[in-house]
Design a protein around this nucleic acid. Structure first.
Lengths: 140, 140
DNA sequence: ATGGTTGTAACCTTTGCTGTTACAACCATA
DNA sequence: TATGGTTGTAACAGCAAAGGTTACAACCAT
């Protein structure tokens, strides 16, 4: 089980906007060319990023632009914009309450699962779009 | 996108074995009763745990038992036994090498993704089956 | 020989991801 | 006002994985 590619695509989109919005109109077609996926996929993900308040999109004329400075956008923001699930883990629904394990497993495991998920999210929170942009420029 | 319930089911299975193997024959039917899922699902997951060297299973007569002390089994061991994917993240396959972002995004992101995954795995590595067992007994 | 158990195959349904076509709504510009 | 490029969204389709179920051969203590 993997996270969908929406996360890396969304990151790619934001990097492109941050890099090119000054010089070009960044449309779904332009992005489609760099990312190499269908423009409709791009538009849907761009819609999620827009709902999350990260980008604005110009109706009719076209083009996306950042609504926040790149140092205020983290990988966690991007992840949450495109992955809607609250919990990373799917718990089996109906453990038997007549079994001592079945009765207690939720209260034992729920906190652990939260801790694990938080560890991942904290790491994502530390990585900003501006840092990714800097590293990209270094490698160019 | 969520991890499958195999992870929590596998944890439930191991807790049951650790708790009951002394007093009862822990069969897939017994486990099915506590976990409330089909015995065939249990047998498949039990097979993964067996392949990973965590449990043994008695042919013919039936019953599963731990092959390692509970303090040497971590949530990470369990997770890796039932989730076979190498990377948590699905990267879009063919970014355009003629775009400066498309050309560099892999080298920029791959390390980040590894860091994020490691943070999660380290947290899992800290939680042992014996600790879960103790907490279960406290709540009984 | 019996009966409970395991391992596995075969099938099904549902869900989510990814890709695609199509088209109405939008808006700067000619 | 008409045009053309763009967005937002609906409606498909194909594919893969999850989860469930039935069935049955192989296994082994009794």
């Amino acid at each position: 089980m993997q996270f969908s590619s929406r996360f890396t695509i969304a990151t790619h989109i934001l990097l492109c906007i941050a890099m090119f919005e000054k010089e070009t109109k960044v449309t779904s077609n332009f992005l489609s060319g760099s990312i190499n996926v269908n423009p409709v996929i791009i538009r849907n993900i761009l819609g999620s990023l827009s709902s999350a308040g990260m980008v604005g999109i110009k109706q009719g004329i076209g083009g996306a632009y950042l609504l926040k400075p790149a140092q205020e956008i983290t990988l966690l923001d991007i992840f949450k914009a495109v992955e809607k699930e609250e919990s990373l883990f799917h718990f089996h629904e109906n453990p038997n309450p007549e079994c001592p394990i079945g009765r207690t497993i939720h209260s034992v495991m729920d906190g652990k699962i939260e801790t694990i998920q938080s560890a991942m999210e904290n790491e994502m929170k530390d990585i900003t779009l501006s840092r990714l942009l800097e590293e990209t420029k270094e490698k160019m």
